[in-house]
Design a protein around this nucleic acid. Sequence first.
DNA 1: CAGTGGTCTAGACCACGTT
DNA 2: ACGTGGTCTAGACCACTGG
Lengths: 253, 253
Amino acid sequence: MSAILESFDDISKSAPEPIYQQIKSTIQQRIASGDWTAGQKLPSENELVVALDVSRMTINRALRELTQEGLIKRVHGLGSFVAEAPRHASLIELQDIALEIEQHGKRHSSQVLVLDSVAAPVEIAAQMQLPPGRPVDHLRAIHFQDEIPIQLETRYVNPVVMPEFGQQDFTRVTATAYLLQQFKPDEMEHRVSAVMPDRTLRKLLSMPDGQPCLQLNRRTWSNDQVVTCVTLTYPGDRYELGARYATDEYQLR
Amino acid sequence: MSAILESFDDISKSAPEPIYQQIKSTIQQRIASGDWTAGQKLPSENELVVALDVSRMTINRALRELTQEGLIKRVHGLGSFVAEAPRHASLIELQDIALEIEQHGKRHSSQVLVLDSVAAPVEIAAQMQLPPGRPVDHLRAIHFQDEIPIQLETRYVNPVVMPEFGQQDFTRVTATAYLLQQFKPDEMEHRVSAVMPDRTLRKLLSMPDGQPCLQLNRRTWSNDQVVTCVTLTYPGDRYELGARYATDEYQLR
DNA sequence: CAGTGGTCTAGACCACGTT
DNA sequence: ACGTGGTCTAGACCACTGG
């Protein structure tokens, strides 16, 4: 039996996770770990049906969704293959910057500037769909790649949903990593814009005069409540956001 | 019988399009046309099974994918509903800027600066995965919203795939609209960055000094060939890119 | 309780690409 | 011809929601 098929040993029909999701996760992990390399052929649907003892429709759903996510490629009549090198930046995925930097073989560190609780300013309250003045947790931190500042994170968190957020040590675990551990977002919104940094921002990001910043604003929902809204500011000359994906499922108008 | 169900009259089992795709398209059109409004309840899966005489798995796939795309919301035990107002800008979808502007109730116009065939410069050739010097079509156009410049489009097109591109009148139909008419992209890549405009660009976009631009670079594939690569440059103070989506299918790492 | 969506099965037919 | 994925069927069981 192929070594590839042994990766699927821990698929369990009685687990709380749906089977197709277990299959997806297994494959995602194998690809992320570099265990399976680009271009490598995956087992065929029928082989997986036999090996995992599940219906082909279940296998098919797992593989189809991985295709939509761009992780694998399928060629009719040929088979399924691990897709090319993954995209490098997080425009769609919600990726922890520490992981992202380390995957590039660089060193990540961060410095917490502010971590407190404030009465929500009007615009923040609006963004978080809360009444103004309601207390929210507030974090401001800089992230470094090999000692070079690369991102300023300004984050607000709904303490009703995340009561322990204010007590964390965000020099050890990034806020993104902590929050992803705590809940599974079921909706997100991204907004991207270009802005000129003011003097403070320029200093924090060690930017020369006249350089713009790329700004990503993200809101994350769980159970129809805004859990967190964050503004990530990048030096325009040191960063780029990107994504690549199969278009089959997207609305083209 | 509900008027809603009559929308599905033209579902055909012998059409070349898969049934689930026909169902998706029908619903997309009804929502896009404003025919069905946010919050409105859709027929249940079982009602659709009876009305369309197809299997529930087929209905389910159509509705599930629409959920992933953020067009509808489904609540377990309750039903399926048209989702909130669509997102306003194109970060994921490939949207024609003329349509986008007109959907906001403004007037779109455009001015073609350049439309010719050139020997592909090195960086362009690399982006298009062609040998340098190969002839490529080249378009440069400005798009206006109510006479205010809002986007500079710099586009290269592979003439092998799109032989008639150079003969179009792009003051009447945008290049995006024309290309979408000609082929269905099966893969895209987006890269977003912040840049400072040079004097020429500032003039073209009527921008004050010191304002940054948001730049979106997109490559589009069909049959593993790059069909077109385009750089869209927006005045930072007049534009924002965004997207909102259900996260169920995305990899969260 | 009845109705809903979430998942799964064990078949089936077809179009595609390689051989 | 063969194996592949693309789609579809007609059932099924379950968990969730509302009355």
